[in-house]
Amino acid sequence: MTARHFGTLCLLPLLIFSLAFLALPLVRLVLSSAAGEAGWGIYLQMLQKPRYLSALAQTLAVSAAVTVVALAVSTTAGLYLARNRFRGRAILLSILTLPLAFPGVVVGFMIILLGGRQGLVNQITPGHLVFAYSTFGLFLGYLYFSIPRVLLTVMAAAEKIDPALEEAARSLGAPPSRVLWDVLLPALRPAMVAAGAIAFATAMGAFGTAFTLATDIDVLPMVIYTEFTLSANFAMASALSIALGLVTWSVLLIARSLSGGAVASGG
């Protein structure tokens, strides 16, 4: 057996698996989106129905807000933790990366514990504040799982910045605020683009959190779920899935071309 044959043999299981369980199902998904009464016109229908459009708009809005806030919080915290050494730093870092392995459902439960009817905020505030099931609750849930992902990417980039860059700016007379704007943030830009794209795509496709919170707003994944299970409208569920997948995939693709290949996973 030659080396080339062996290489092909090594690749064979992967090829078979992804053909059977990725390529063919995706083709089937595309075909079934057109299998309804409307045919391919379903994509036009999707854009005409206010229910789908408003779901899309709300999903985009929440995801964009989460991306902005997660970037702000995680960049601040990430820069601080990457540039300072103090006692307790390791503990703070573990707390901030803890939710990495939490599935969306658990994150939803965390938000219920914070802002649900039996939640902490409701217990300690006199005004009986319940926000878990609102758009704000959903926003907090998405923020909960976005902070660790963004933080890790930003910190990895912050630790790679040549300390001499900052020293050079200071030797030329730059005060700390200028160092931040002229040196640190430009150096972090690719990582922030990458992390922001991941946060955005993850929030767009997040299902578990919305499912647990049983939110009163319609986000796209919940609409797809109800179309499929309750209305048995397979064609529309497929079409919406494809639209959602295209949005998240292209956001990651654009971000990668902007950041030079740093975008890896959507999680």
């Binding site: 040549d162 860059l165 050079a168 030329l172 430009p186």
Partner: peptide, 13 residues
């Protein structure tokens, strides 16, 4: 002062 660093530390942006 004016300083020239070993890695030059030129601002890539």
């Amino acid at each position: 002062i004016g300083m020239v660093f070993q890695s030059y530390a030129l601002f890539p942006n």
